[in-house]
């Protein structure tokens, strides 16, 4: 299957709730990962691994370059090749 942006946002919300016990209501597309949600770059890697686990997609550090907000992250994940699913 391929993921729509809405599905990816839901996955990200799920991962953030699991990993950081973050209220999904705070996870909006505009939310800044570091400033608004308190996620540093090491936390971000845990988040990427969790999303990998949930989706089966392979995410590389280079895909994460320039990601600042939840919206950036959703876009970066949406851009990944989804063929292997």
């Amino acid at each position: 299957m391929t993921y729509s942006s809405e599905q990816i946002l839901d996955l990200v919300k799920e991962a953030l709730a699991e990993l950081f016990r973050l209220d999904p209501a705070r996870v909006t597309l505009e939310a800044h990962l570091a400033d608004d949600l308190g996620i540093d770059s090491i936390d971000a890697v845990d988040l990427l691994y969790r999303v990998e686990r949930l989706t089966g997609l392979k995410i590389g550090a280079e895909d994460f370059r320039g990601v600042r907000t939840v919206g950036d992250l959703v876009e970066a994940i949406a851009r990944l090749p989804q063929a292997e699913r």
């Binding site: 971000a44 890697v45 370059r65």
Partner: peptide
């Protein structure tokens, strides 16, 4: 550096 690449590269 960058940190994400360090962690993922080492893992």
């Amino acid at each position: 550096a960058p940190t994400e690449a360090m962690v993922m590269g080492a893992v």
